[in-house]
Amino acid sequence: MKQSGSKISTSEVVIVVINSILGAGILTLPRTISKAVETPDVWISVIVSGVLVALISILLVTLCRRFPGKTVFEFVPEITGKWISYFVGLLIIIYFVILCSFEVRVMAEITSMYILERTPSWVTIMVSLWVGIYMISGGLKVIIRVFEIVLPVTLLLLAVVFLLSSRMFELSNLRPLLGEGLLPVLKGIKPSFLSYSGYEVLLIITAMMTDVKTSNKAAIYSILTCTIIYLVTIVMVVGNLSLPGIESRTWPTLDMVRSFEIEGVFFERYESLFIVFWLMQIFATYAFKHYFAALGIRDLFSLQKITGIEYALLPVLYLIAYLPKNLEETLALGDFLGNISVFLFGLLPLLLLIISMIRKKGGKHASNEGSELQSAQSQ
């Protein structure tokens, strides 16, 4: 792999994965999963989805560890051959590009709805892309350093919001438990996969790790953290707004934040502060996917530099982000991405792992080569 910077630690991998996952999903998940489940057992679906995503993440890491120091764009040709690998690599890159555009469009929709009313979407989209390219051009280390600061503040603010909203929490909104059996719970697994989109970056950043042996730990910690956040969010939103109240709202999480105020303190209404910080979290998801899309193009086509690719992607991201005519089409695009991710990062990596074992590609021999290379570099 052409290294554009130094190796990253296990904790930095956790930061990358969490920031790649936590984005627009936390705002849309309560509505999409409630429509699918139609029972108060939505929180069980979140737990099941988290377990499945954790297993898939371990699968991705296991596949990557067979080819140390190589991203998915570099080791797939060894498994499938050159031409099939181009097709697989292009699918992943296109997925990243569309997901980038989706996150930017959601940022524009939320901004025009809650913060900058009457501001055209194209203005917000363009500003977000240009601010993003300024940060992304500094490399992965710069992006990580920025969101190492943003993530703890965002999570602290989210915890404060949950604490304040607990005064309106009604436990009866979460009952009865499994009143209609397990079938509704199973229906909620598929819609929640979009909210976990981001774990697939493990296919790239595993190659950049200082200690690849801790990749399983990094994957589990990341998914566990996101699952806990999603679980608490779902429980609090359902407990505050009730299931029927959620299904009629576009952004249930934001509506929950707007439903309370604290008189006599510096901030009487917290939704503006929460929206601003969560927009930064959505921006983090976009930034990492933009960088990895450019990195994928570089590795797939054996190019030398990544900077020109990042700038070349800007008009493509803008056009795709502006393509949905309204909010409904934007959310439909998100559902489509969720369906694609199940195949592209669930079934396909499993197939690649099986083929690599059958064809004896990678494995212990590659691991030994990787360890010898690392020892040679240290010397």
Rank of each mutant, 00 (worst) to 15 (best):
F288D: 10
R167F: 07
P324K: 00
S128R: 05
N339F: 15
E247A: 14
R258G: 06
L99M: 06
L157T: 15
P184I: 10
V51H: 05
K325E: 13
V257W: 00
D299Q: 13
L178D: 13
L155V: 06
V46G: 03
W122Y: 14
V51C: 07
R298D: 13
T119H: 01
A332E: 15
L174D: 02
I56F: 13
F67C: 01
S172Q: 12
T124N: 08
F260Y: 10
L63V: 08
L241E: 07
L331P: 00
Y286W: 09
V37A: 00
F75S: 07
K213E: 12
L177F: 11
R249W: 04
T32E: 06
A159S: 07
L344C: 13
I93E: 00
S341Y: 10
F75Q: 04
S302V: 10
L344P: 15
S45K: 01
E12F: 15
R66M: 04
P244S: 05
F260H: 07
V46P: 01
S9T: 15
I136G: 01
K2T: 12
W130A: 00
F343D: 15
L178R: 09
I309Q: 08
R105G: 00
L151K: 02
V14K: 04
I189M: 12
V265S: 08
S375I: 13
F102V: 01
E328Y: 14
